[in-house]
Design a protein around this nucleic acid. Structure first.
Length: 854
DNA sequence: GCAAGGTC
């Protein structure tokens, strides 16, 4: 039988290109998690059946196990030695399952991931999904190495298959683990420390990261240069002459001097001389070179400085242009065009663009220039237009960005700009002056990129030895000025220079420091640090400047490069790097008061912030509601902070207290037309899930990590304690009671009303219980869904999901109704009743214990 | 809630 070959690319577009080239365009396509292209061909000299599919970037991402997810119970320092887990980055896409299924029955795997470290790492993610042992690498699993997705490169790669490089993949594993542990440990510590003290920081988290923090560092460094700048007076000579009815101001060779008396002395020397002699006239041919191919960093810089588009927006627009086929892949480091690049075709496509037509046609007639040699990072070709477009097709921002990409591309294959530069030098009283003129002889690429044009500056004719009459010699008094705030475009250059982030992530880091309120983007897209951003960086500078220096990234890079080159063992490097960061972390924690001194000077203590809202269950005093991000409650007496759900409003809920802890209940509401609201107890909301259960119930069967399926709150992070399950059947109509899972007997699945203390038993052995929003047709009580484990409760039809009324003994009807669209109402027998103090206004007739006991 | 890196 013909061998079967599965090929996996990094993204669907590359899978399509590879399949198209290798099949000569004759393949069939099957839709799946990602498309699968099938065709017959030749593999290693035999006829073979091919399938080509792709992942969508990384399949897995790395995180801590659930045990370490709770900020309340995990000391951040433990994170450095915690295990890390890889889980599917996008579980909904089912990429892992897709690869496993497609690989079944295949004899060979060929990996077409991007040829960089990340790509090498994804190779091994694919190998993991496929479920093949790594010992098969080289026998069954091959790596295609290609530098561009062109026919020539694809065929060449196919004929030169190699093995994936495990060391490079391990280097990425190391980077992921170090970034995760360092970033999360510092972030959690800082966030809790400062948000537990100040009420007006206005940021959801006080984050730290080896890329985002140095990025912020650059902005603050410039800010500090500005604030500590002391202007100085300076003086300079302005000498004016008249020649052939041109009035000219000459440049003084000394530019400026900082002593007035000396400036006066020089002025006198010139005035006393009275004549100005031309000492030299020189003319040079100058050349302004055309640009190389456009890469992401340069695109982002132009987008920010010339088009006023921030990096985040620019990348979004560029991605849309890419997916619509107007431009090539927008994330690339390379500025060199591949040898096989189709310049002719690309130029021809642009002649239909009215704005470019004239220039493009001239280029086609006169021939275009070979582009300058750029740098080839081995990733993707430079960003180029792929087809013609009009403003109507794209919309304003996309059109401007697209036009820039076209202009840059055309510029890169146009002539250089040529001009002559004439410098005339003068002397008077032993002081030297000069004037410079420029004359463009060939506009070249500046015709299509007019903002790059060389300024014409005409000069009258001067002859060497000529004596010129001076009009006047003034002393100009000026002040030195500080630099401006860092522009976004300068920041991108600095990040690139120091290796902070990648073409794909630079925009994300900049966006992060804006969103977290560390910097603000001012007019002209200049970045001004906020009080928070400044306090953070100045704090690191006090405690441990390494933490905010760009070298922190290069340190990690240099460490993992040792792994990539196979020089040092992966585990050793990770352990060593983490040990160093752990020491830095401990020192930082010990010294945090030095950073805090800066915060103290800028921000208000929690006690001075917010307004009184609801009563604390511990001390019965009113607690303060802090409305600035992140909104939270603060008890001044107990000095405790209680976090609240975010992005909504909070108000007192009927002045009712939680029956469990005495804290006054609150009502949280989200805005908008589909706004939701639910009541919550601030103490329960902040209760560590397992601690509480275990304290209350020795020998509890609750397992760490068991998710809370009862709590309908989208923000709920409880496991077994929750609120607001459903309306209480006793007082639900008028009293507003809500059934909560009774924490005392949680593993026994009981519900307890927070108003009237009514207890409702739930079926045992269920592993998930949730609300349906439906009402029992018999007694009008809430209907719950109960999910049983098949093993413990085999039921007719293999059904595992049941729903029933919490008061009547009816259990199965709603399920059947849901499954078959009709009600099969089977009434069972009640087995007594739950504790129900107060009686209430039961609507279900004779109140019974709910649900049959399974 | 947290990092940085892929990609959509």
């Amino acid at each position: 039988m013909a061998p079967r070959v599965l090929m996996v690319a990094e993204k669907p577009s590359i899978a399509l290109s590879v399949a198209t080239v290798l099949s000569g365009g004759r393949m069939s396509t099957r839709r799946g998690s990602t498309d699968v292209h099938e065709f017959d061909g030749v593999f290693l000299g035999h006829c073979a059946q091919y399938k080509v599919t792709s992942v969508i970037g990384h399949v897995f991402s790395v995180d801590f196990p659930p045990k370490y997810q709770n900020w309340d119970v995990t000391d951040p320092i433990d994170l450095f030695e915690a295990p890390v887990l890889k889980s599917e980055a996008n579980p909904k896409a089912h990429i892992s399952r897709h690869l496993h299924q497609e690989a079944r029955g295949c004899d060979y795997i060929v990996l077409w991931l991007d040829c960089d470290r990340e790509g090498e790492n994804i190779c091994y993610e694919v190998i993991e999904c496929i479920g093949v042992h790594e010992s098969e690498v080289g026998k069954k699993i091959y790596r295609a190495r290609f530098s561009s997705v062109t026919e020539k490169d694809i065929l060449k790669a196919m004929n030169n298959l190699v093995e994936p490089n495990k060391d490079e993949a391990l280097a990425v594993d190391a980077r992921q683990e170090i970034d995760l542990k360092v970033g999360v440990a510092f972030t959690r510590f800082q966030t809790r420390y400062f948000q537990g003290k100040y009420g007006n920081l206005d940021s959801r988290v006080i984050s730290y990261g080896p890329c985002q923090t140095p990025t912020l560092g650059f902005c603050v460094q410039r800010y500090l240069q500005i604030t500590t700048f002391k202007p100085e007076k300076f003086w300079s000579l302005h000498l004016y002459i008249m020649k052939d009815s041109y009035e000219l101001q000459l440049e003084w060779e000394r530019k400026k001097i900082f002593d007035f008396d000396v400036a006066v002395m020089f002025q006198k020397m010139v005035v006393n001389d009275g004549t100005l002699k031309v000492t030299n006239v020189s003319t040079t041919e100058e050349c302004k070179t055309r640009p190389c191919g456009l890469n992401t960093v340069n695109l982002l810089k132009v987008a920010s400085s010339a088009l006023g588009l921030g990096p985040q927006v620019a990348m979004q627009v560029a991605e849309r242009l890419y997916t619509q086929g107007f431009i090539s892949y927008p994330r690339t480091e390379s500025t060199a065009y591949p040898a096989s690049f189709d310049f002719q075709g690309t130029v021809e496509a642009l002649q239909y663009n009215p704005a470019l037509r004239e220039y493009v046609q001239a280029l086609l007639v006169n021939g275009f220039q070979k582009p300058r040699m750029g740098s080839d990072a081995g990733d993707h070709p430079p960003i180029t237009p792929m087809k013609s477009a009009s403003e109507d097709m794209l919309g304003n921002d996309a059109w401007r960005l697209y036009m820039y990409i076209c202009q840059h591309f055309i510029g890169s294959i146009s002539h250089d700009c040529k001009y002559t530069r004439t410098k005339v030098e003068f002397e008077s009283g032993a002081e030297l002056f000069c004037v410079v003129g420029q004359h463009v002889t060939c506009k070249g690429f500046t015709s299509i990129m007019p903002w790059m044009a060389v300024n014409e500056k005409k000069l009258p004719q001067f002859l060497r030895g000529e004596r010129i009459k001076m009009m006047k010699v003034d002393i100009y008094e000026g002040n030195t000025t500080p630099p401006d705030y860092l522009s976004e475009s300068e920041l991108i250059s600095l990040m690139e220079k120091h290796g902070i982030g990648t073409d794909a992530s630079i925009s994300v880091h900049i966006n992060n420091i804006c969103e977290r309120n560390y910097v603000q983007v001012n007019a002209g897209r200049r970045l001004v640090p906020t009080a928070l951003g400044t306090a953070l960086i100045r704090g690191y500078q006090c405690i441990d400047p390494d933490l905010c220096l760009p070298d922190i990234r290069s340190f990690i890079e240099q460490q993992i490069t040792l792994i990539a080159k196979g020089k040092v063992n992966h585990a050793w490097v990770v352990r060593h790097a983490l040990q160093q960061f752990m020491q830095k972390y401990s020192y930082f924690v010990k010294q945090i008061e030095r950073m805090d001194a800066l915060f103290e000077a800028q921000f208000s203590p929690l006690a001075d912030t917010g307004r009184l809202l609801s009563k604390c269950g511990k001390c019965t005093h009113y607690m303060k509601y802090i409305s600035s991000r992140p909104s939270r409650l603060y008890c001044v007496t107990c000095e405790e902070v209680y976090s609240l759900p975010q992005n909504g409003s909070i108000k007192l809920y009927k002045e009712l207290a939680c029956p469990l802890d005495g804290f006054e209940l609150l009502l949280f509401s989200t805005g908008g037309p589909e706004g939701k609201s639910f009541p919550l107890c601030p103490y329960c909301y902040n209760s560590p899930p397992f601690e509480g259960i275990e304290k209350l119930l020795p020998g509890s069967s609750a397992k760490p990590g068991m998710p809370c399926s009862l709590c309908p709150h989208p923000t709920c992070r409880h496991s077994l304690i929750s609120q607001g399950v459903c309306a209480c059947p006793e007082c639900g109509g008028g009293g507003g009671g809500t059934l909560v899972l009774d924490p005392v007997s949680a593993p026994k699945w009981k519900l307890c009303c927070n108003i009237c203390n009514c207890l409702v038993l739930l079926p045992q052995g269920a592993h998930r219980i949730s609300t349906t929003g439906k009402r029992c047709p018999d007694c009008d009580s809430a209907v719950l869904e109960v999910d049983f484990n098949k093993k413990t409760t085999p039921l007719a039809g293999g059904a595992t999901l049941h729903a029933g009324c919490i008061l009547c003994d009816e259990l199965l009807h709603s399920l059947v109704e849901m499954k078959h669209g009709r009600s099969m109402f089977r009434r069972g027998r009640g087995r007594g009743r739950g504790r129900r103090p107060g009686g209430g206004r039961g609507r279900g007739g004779d109140p019974k214990m709910s649900f049959r006991d399974f």
